[in-house]
Amino acid sequence: MNAKPRVFRARQGMGRAVRGSALVAHDGFSARYDLDRIAGIFSRPAHKLAGQSYVGKILVLDTAKGGVATAWMLHEMQSRGIVPLALVLNSVNPILAQGAALGDVTMLAGFDEDITAAVPNGAEVEVDPQTGTLTVLN
């Protein structure tokens, strides 16, 4: 018997609905600090996802870190197709929202629970900013 999909509600959302594989860690996100944007992997050695590819993944992380460069970088990453499918975070800063707006990257933020603990790594999930929901499909 299939388990019933679990649905989590976010207070903030932007972009179009997407479906894909979740890459989960209780760690922060900054495009400049954490990523090798040419190789498409997390590159900061101390990051919990170091060495893993973020391309086409729905990243489920704790919060935005670092500086303002992400506001441009998501747009640049999108132009080359070396970009996450969506960003899902417990909380975001303005930079991440500004970057998602320019780069047309789907984003959800602001959950009642720790979303990094609620979503299993590798799970198939659906993110719908219009309804403000993240659904774990398996």
Binding site: R32, W72, M73, R80
Partner: peptide, 12 residues
């Protein structure tokens, strides 16, 4: 405005 070209890339 922060806008170094490493961040902007050609797209920016």
């Amino acid at each position: 405005i922060m806008a170094d070209t490493e961040s902007l890339g050609d797209a920016g």
